[in-house]
Design a protein around this nucleic acid. Sequence first.
DNA 1: GTCTATACTCTGATAGAC
DNA 2: GTCTATCAGAGTATAGAC
Lengths: 210, 210
Amino acid sequence: MVKPPGQTERDAKARILDAADAVFVRRGTDGARMQEIADEAGVNKALLHYYFRSKADLARAVWLRIASSFVPGIFEMLASDASLDDKIDRFVDAYLTRLSRHHYLITYVVSEAARHPDLVPAFYSSGRGGAARHMMSKLRRQIGEEIEKGRMAPVAPDQFLITLVSSCAFPFAARPMITAGLGLGAKGFDKFIEKRRKDLPVFLKRALRP
Amino acid sequence: MVKPPGQTERDAKARILDAADAVFVRRGTDGARMQEIADEAGVNKALLHYYFRSKADLARAVWLRIASSFVPGIFEMLASDASLDDKIDRFVDAYLTRLSRHHYLITYVVSEAARHPDLVPAFYSSGRGGAARHMMSKLRRQIGEEIEKGRMAPVAPDQFLITLVSSCAFPFAARPMITAGLGLGAKGFDKFIEKRRKDLPVFLKRALRP
DNA sequence: GTCTATACTCTGATAGAC
DNA sequence: GTCTATCAGAGTATAGAC
């Protein structure tokens, strides 16, 4: 931090964090093994403890890194001055794209949050603090105004937001269940998501028609 | 199995299964400890291995029990001759009621399915085999007919089903995230769900208007 | 069937050389 | 900063008495 970091130091620490990210997300915190992380980072187990004191600390670092790569962009978009229709389009597109690339991400976040509720506040304040509150109040106001002007059916803003998030996130969380349940093949799920990318915004906007 | 089981045998085995259910669902399979299950069942650790050979076997038994208590009823309802509107009402009501009582259930099912995809087929065939296929084909046909008769907007049946399930299930899977994100208090989440029970069917049917 | 005692493995964490 | 070697504890599973 103080002096220009030597090549190898940054590299090793960064590689460890990348490896830890992959392994924790894939196996869950409890299922993850320090040895597997070390192997995947190409370093020795002891080095993990050198940079991050304990497994719990490493897990926390990974959690925060994921949060800060996830929350700020989406919050900012939802708090912007874009129209509600635009926000729906962008949210669905961004979320589906993002989660398509990281299959296990949602499962990890959800189960980690359930098992370690104390980590949750840090998730939201990974950007600047209070971003969640700011976004929510802005979004609530926007939806309230749309309803008042008769441009939108009277739906509770919070309920709508959760329906929006749920419709995007859950298919990935339940991916194996859905693949089997709908009888989808190997590429079937990806096709399903690509169709969803087109259909879901239409469906949601239809429900909002006054 | 062969002779009438002695009181204690059934009791102990049943208690173990109940305890295992609670602990596995609460901690996840990896986080669960045989000792905790034994304690919660009021028996010794060794007895778990007497009835169920290994931790993996016990986990499998719990998984199947949950599946068979979850799948058949809902599949039967969705495959019934009830109207689509009725099915929406019943599904939302049943799902929200069910998951309200077992907070961790969805998180457990989702993360277990992700980490052990080999368990998924057994989940669906926990009733009679092929129930999933039968339900899906019936539901697809029903929705297809409604659309054809112009009584419903043209939505892909599979997409709609997943939206329906997602909207009900995800709020529980993400409960801690939602509670914090929306700034809900202790009882806030329950109120949120009760409102959802009324609002969600309205919202979904609105989206289906032709 | 149920318990106590114990074997054995796995894993997180530390000590210490280089 | 990075490695090898090792410890201590936790955890699953088994042996064997009752």
